[in-house]
Amino acid sequence: MLILMNGNEAVKRVAHNPLVWFARRILSGVAVVWAAATFAFLIQCLLPGDRAQIIINVRSGNVGPAAPAELAAINAQYGFDQPLVVQYAKYVWRILHGDLGESYQQHRAVAGIIAEQIGPTIVLAIAALLMAWAIAILTTLLIAGRDNIWSKLLSGAQIFLATVPPYWLATILLVIFAVNLRIFPVVGESSPMGLVLPTLALALELSGFFGQVVLNEFTRVLEQPFVTSARARGMSDFGVRLHHVLRHAALPGITLSGWALGKLLSGAILIEVVFARQGLGGVLVAATSSRDVPIVSGAVLISAGLFVLVSVIVDLAYRILDPRMKLT
């Protein structure tokens, strides 16, 4: 698992002074965000075709070339006629002031658009993360170290779930449980019941991944002497399992959760579209098909920032939770 490796590396870098470590961590985080911003800017410039032309036609629903005067007005409005360096400097300056530009299509600030849509997406992502862990831990408890038909079936199911495309699963869940059986609402909106199906669709895939990792860790642990001794002391089998599975799931759990962020965001985009949920997914897909680059690059920037934030938290949590790391 590459992320475990990354976690360890990060930990190795944990020099002796936590403050130095922390400062370096923040600095490198800032560098990542800055690079992502530059990347986002480059995307906007790379766009083939005349940006002004696209903006005009997308807004008016027309096709075909627009009049030069119209084009000039748009070029002036967005500053496309200025040298790239100037555009870049202005772009960075605006980002520092929390301004991610204006959507070509919606005429609104990108920061505002993302701010109002990211809430439901984050709720979905966190709910799915929690549910994925619940499922992964539960199945691990049931199957680790056992060799019967059920454990085989469950671990097979885990591999299956880790592979199944979540958007496809989401469509099936929607039709079966909402449209046909009517157990859950079709239009979820913000109700807790409406969150269940999207969360499940997103969590099942992840639980497959988590389950496999935790299972490997845990199977090793079960063979160790202290487990046998715990059993000998009269602890129930389930008690032993619960105790150890939780303990040993904790550390990889933190790193894996950090790693899952990207997967969750990717998945959430698809799932939101399937369920017609409010969130970044719908906005991003619409922006992609109408080449509303400021929104797409704004989302790139925000998700890079999120990633940096989460990885700092993960590393911090690692330092706090794992005393061994401090000794190295």
Binding site: L174, A178, V179, P185, V186, V187, V273, A276
Partner: peptide, 17 residues
Amino acid sequence: KFLPDQTVRYGSLITGE
């Protein structure tokens, strides 16, 4: 409500939502 997915849109009418 904006329900761009037609399965969701029509499904919501079927279920009375």
